Structure formats: C-alpha cells, structure tokens
Computed example of a mutant assay.
Amino acid sequence: MQPDLGDLNAFLTVARAGGFRDASRVMGVSASGLSEAVRRLEARLGLRLLHRTTRSVVPTEAGARLIERLGPAIAEVETALEVVNSFRDRPAGTLRLNVPISAARLVLPTIVPGFLAAYPDIRLEITAEDRFVDVIAAGCDAGIRYEERLEQDMIAVPIGPRTQRFAAAASPTYLKRRGCPQHPRDLLDHDCLRGRFSGGAVHPWEFERDGEVINIDTSGPLIVQLGAGSDLLVDAAIAGSGVVYHFEDWLRPHLASGALMPILEPWWPRFSGPFLYYPGRRLVPEPLRAFIDYVKLERAG
C-alpha cells in the first residue's frame, strides 16, 4: 500500500519543526494525530524515520534522505493544486516566503499590509532568517536575497529600494569621550560593535570613496549574530558602548532623533537592493503570481 500524502506531509512538518507539539501548531491538528500519522507511515515503509526522545525529535538517516526528496515533491503538489485558483474570481491559498531578517524589518512593512488588503483570500507565511536555504526544500514558494547570493537557475524580481548603504554611527556621548574618526583607519583605535553572520564569519567593515575601497579589521567589546542580535548592537551604540556599522535604513530613525551621529558618511558604501526570487522550472502558484504582480505594480507606481 502506498503511503498517504497526508502522512507524508505530517512527517515532513514534524521533522522541520523538530517536534510534534510545534508541528501541531503549524498544521492546526493535535500532536497525537501527527504522532499516529508518522507511526502509520513508518509501518507502511518498514523503516524508522524519526528518533524520538522526551526532549527532541531528530530524523534517522532514512528520514533525512526522505526529507531531501519529499520537500520539493510536496511543493510541486501544492503548486499543482494552486493552479485551480486561476478559475476563481481572485487568487486564494497560502504564500510562503523565506526572507532575511533585514528584509522583514526594512522592506516588507511597506508591502505586506497593502498586499493583504488587496488579496484577502491569500494567507502569507513568512520565515525570517539569515542563513541561506533552498527555498523549495524548506517548503517555501519564494525568497528574498541579495544579488550575490542568488542562484543561477532562479528568476529574480527587484523588491524594495534598488540602492542601499551601510552606515557607521555612534552616540554623542561616545564621540565626546573618544573623538570622531576622520578616516576609516581611525576606527582601529575605537571600540567597534560587530556582527557575525550565521555561518560564523564576522561582518567586514568596508568603506568606499572616489573609487578607493578600504576594508577595516575592527575590534571591540561586543559581537552579536546579525539579524536577531542587530537591535542589541544598535542599543549598545546608543548607550555609548562604541561604533556600530549597519544598514543605513536600520539606523535612520536613531540618526534622525540624534541618538546616533553619522560617522565617515562620505565613505559609506552603496550596494544593490534585494530581489524576490523563485525557481523558473515550476508553475508559479497563484498567490505567488499575485505577489509578484503587486510588487511590480508598487515599483511602477
């Protein structure tokens, strides 16, 4: 007997959530029902797919191999089902996006409310994280990333500002105590509040002016993981702990209020804005097509 699609989806959700309780909240069904679905699937396959303890649920080797193939397959099934939305008066269904925390903070707030108002039958699910993932294997329809992190087989649509800058800033009390850097190399003598990427590398501080690019190997009293810890970096800078280097848009409210003062502004480097990306090898689900059209319309307007 072939495994039931519902059981396969239950297994995939439990594995991704790392437990039956969290998966039950995602799917809106009981944890006991999910447990029974996974047991039923394991019985039909004759294999254990999940190691279960009182603290965690971890895929076995067989389970991990099944997840690798199952994620894209179920995504294709969901896409096929979404095709019927073209026969409705307006698109409906679920749109799942995987985005960096910076996009959730700086890009989507100006887009999401209007989109939800325009398409009340679409439910938007957003996962904000800074690690680079395979959006299809993660069960998402599309993602937002910057140009240097886009894969070649993806279709990319501009979203949000097309040019952004990194900015350096510090509080007035810090600058009064330590002085204001006049050149990027002066930062070598300052307390710099740094961020670390999810992969472990510390975010480089790069400055550019009139074609000259300078990378500064800064040091200081605080390192946080970028994204989730970025507000702590800013709060520490406001409190006078040192110099912060982050998205200008992230720092702008504090620059406007005077809580932070700009440093080395003529050296702030520019970079291209983010893209909404999705695979070109599959049918575009109606909720995603509606979102793409909405983003394009917003940019045209």
Rank of each mutant, 00 (worst) to 15 (best):
Q182T: 14
S102V: 11
G195I: 02
S272F: 11
E82D: 13
L81Y: 07
Q225Y: 15
R90T: 15
R165L: 10
S171R: 03
S30N: 07
E148T: 14
G220I: 05
R282C: 03
G28T: 01
R65D: 14
Q182P: 01
R55A: 12
V234G: 02
H246Q: 15
A23N: 05
G19R: 06
E82T: 01
R270P: 04
S241P: 04
T94E: 09
A290T: 09
L251Q: 01
R21P: 08
E265L: 03
A259F: 01
P287N: 08
A73W: 11
L50P: 01
L66V: 05
D121G: 03
F87C: 05
A228T: 15
G18S: 11
F11Y: 15
F166R: 06
L97N: 01
F20K: 00
A37S: 14
L226P: 00
R25V: 10
Y146V: 08
G18F: 12
S198V: 14
P113S: 11
R282G: 00
W268H: 08
K296S: 08
L95W: 04
G19I: 05
D4P: 09
Y146H: 12
E208K: 03
V295Q: 06
E298H: 14
I67L: 12
F11C: 05
S32N: 12
D121V: 08
V29H: 00
Y245P: 02
R65L: 13
E68P: 04
R178Q: 15
T218Y: 04
H190L: 05
K176A: 15
M261I: 14
F275E: 05
Y245W: 09
Y146W: 15
G200R: 06
V38M: 05
E125H: 13
A62F: 10
L45Q: 12
L251D: 01
R48Y: 10
P253T: 10
E36G: 11
T163H: 11
A142G: 07
R185V: 12
F11V: 04
G63F: 00
A168D: 01
V213F: 09
P279M: 06
L193N: 00
I238N: 02
D217R: 14
P287K: 07
V112D: 04
I263F: 06
A64C: 03
Y294N: 11
A15N: 10
V202G: 00
Y294P: 07
F87G: 02
M1F: 13
Q164L: 12
G220T: 11
G139P: 05
R281V: 12
V284F: 06
V244A: 06
I122K: 00
L49I: 09
D22T: 14
G280Y: 05
L70K: 08
R282W: 13
E286K: 09
V224R: 12
H203S: 12
E286Y: 04
L34H: 07
D4H: 14
F291V: 07
K296M: 13
R149I: 10
H246G: 04
G199Q: 09
A137F: 10
G273Q: 05
P262E: 04
A167T: 02
G93V: 03
P266F: 07
P181T: 03
D89Y: 09
T94C: 03
L70V: 02
T53M: 03
E36I: 13
R52M: 08
G199H: 11
G33P: 01
E125V: 15
A80K: 08
F11S: 03
E61W: 09
R52I: 13
L12G: 11
R194K: 11
A80S: 06
R177W: 10
G179Y: 08
R194H: 08
E76G: 04
L175I: 13
T218R: 05
D7I: 01
